Amino acid sequence: MRKGDVQTLRRLNRRAILNQLRRGPLSRADLARATGLAKSAVSRLVEELLQEGLLEEGPAAPSPLGRPPTLLRLKPRARMALGAEVGVEGTVLVALDWQGQVAWSKEWAHAPEEDLHARIQRLLLEVRPHLQDALGLGITLPGVVAGRRLLLAPNLGWREVDLSPHLAALPLPVALENDAKASALSEVFLHGEQNLAYVVLSTGLGVGVVAEGRLLRGATGAFGEVGHWLGEGVSPCRCGRRGCLEVALGLETLVKRYRALGGTASTLEGLLAGARAGEEAALLALRQLGEALGRFLANLAVAYDPARVVVGGRVAELFPFLEASLRASLQAHAFLEAHRRLPVAPSVYGHLAPAVGGASLFLARFFELGGLWAEGPRRNGGEGYAEVAFGDRYGLGA
């Protein structure tokens, strides 16, 4: 067996152990049975993982016979990743641990016209105190992302932007992704979803689609830019065309509709406060949005046939007020009987979901590599584990 094969096998075996423990505490004997590995191999690898601080031993499991086995579990917050959503009107930064728990979050607003360099500089300032504990920083953007390039972000007015110069000052590995796609990937990593549509609705509208466990990207990375499907409307869109779907469904339009119905607040927060207080105009505007989203999801189901839909972005916080009309509209317009019962739920992370998705890019990779994270040369004169290191400081590689 070649040396590279030994390294690969070690990584795969560690990954098998870590993935089993993600489901809950197990003993060494349980791990051997679940993974099919020899008990000696499990003991050796578990000892490695304990020494690296990835696992911890807990109380013994109840046993009717003999000595009760000691349980192993993933050590809480043993590894963390940072995720940032660089949005139209603000940035959200989170730290996510490898069990999917948000350790902390921070948000700040900025003017929509603020340029990318200024936004990255502020992000760098906020990230610096947390570099030591982070595997990397995943940045999500509301547009078409291809490698280090942002091809188009209509709501920010950015086209064909090479982000490499802006990222050079960030002293940790960085990954870039579209906000909806990163959010969809986080559902795969955190919940094992195999067929999913993740809808992000805030200023714009986008969808990340997972089919049979794989994220769909398209030839240019524009797969899921459903906000720019053309409808029958004539209102101008920031992309330069007229009648795009996100103009009708976007939350800016929601606030305008609410004002036209007699609402007095001028912001989404004010509208939400009105809905919580039972204001008729706010409740009616949200009910109308729910009906429109139900029709949209009926079309989405025909196009992508997901097993489940998760709704994220700012609209996740509005979901309790539009859920009933959304479900009624979906049932009325569904193409297949199965689509009438399509599960639809808000993201458990609410508006933090795109930033959580960014952090998940690194955490998913960490598990994929069996916890062997960019290791240096090994003892005994080995050449190291190049296959588990990042290809460069900006991307996740293959």
Rank of each mutant, 00 (worst) to 15 (best):
P165V: 02
R159G: 02
D115W: 04
L116E: 09
A118M: 06
R242E: 15
R238A: 14
A222F: 09
G227Y: 11
P112I: 05
I139M: 11
C237T: 08
A197P: 00
L201P: 07
S164E: 15
N178I: 02
T220V: 13
V210T: 07
T203M: 01
A211H: 13
L251E: 02
A211F: 11
P173V: 08
L125V: 11
L124Q: 15
T220W: 12
G147M: 11
L251Q: 05
L249E: 08
I120T: 11
E114P: 03
L152M: 10
L135S: 04
K256A: 14
G240I: 10
L215E: 04
Y198I: 00
L201C: 09
A153G: 06
G138L: 01
V144I: 15
Q121M: 13
N155E: 08
F223L: 11
L125R: 14
A118D: 13
A153T: 02
R238I: 02
E193W: 01
H166R: 04
A222Q: 08
E212D: 15
T140L: 03
R128I: 07
L125W: 13
L185Y: 07
E160W: 09
A197I: 04
A168T: 09
P236C: 10
I120F: 15
V199E: 00
R148C: 07
V200M: 06
R122T: 09
H110I: 14
E160M: 13
L185F: 05
E113R: 08
V255I: 10
V188Q: 10
P171C: 10
L251G: 04
G206E: 06
V234Y: 01
R119Y: 03
N155L: 14
V247M: 00
L205D: 01
D115C: 10
R238F: 08
L151S: 06
K256N: 05
V174E: 10
L137Q: 03
P173D: 12
P112M: 11
A197E: 01
G208F: 02
G138K: 03
E126W: 12
Y198C: 06
E113S: 13
G206A: 15
A180G: 00
V199F: 05
P154W: 09
E187A: 05
G143E: 03
L176D: 00
T220K: 08
L170M: 12
E246N: 04
D179I: 01
L176G: 02
L170C: 09
E193T: 08
A211N: 11
L172G: 10
G240A: 07
V210M: 06
A111V: 07
G157T: 04
L216Y: 02
R149C: 09
A169P: 03
V144S: 05
V127D: 10
R119V: 12
L215C: 09
S183E: 00
E246G: 03
C239M: 11
H130P: 04
W229Y: 13
E252Y: 05
A169N: 09
R242K: 13
S164T: 14
V210K: 04
Q132Y: 08
R159T: 07
T220M: 11
G243M: 06
V188H: 04
E160R: 14
V127I: 15
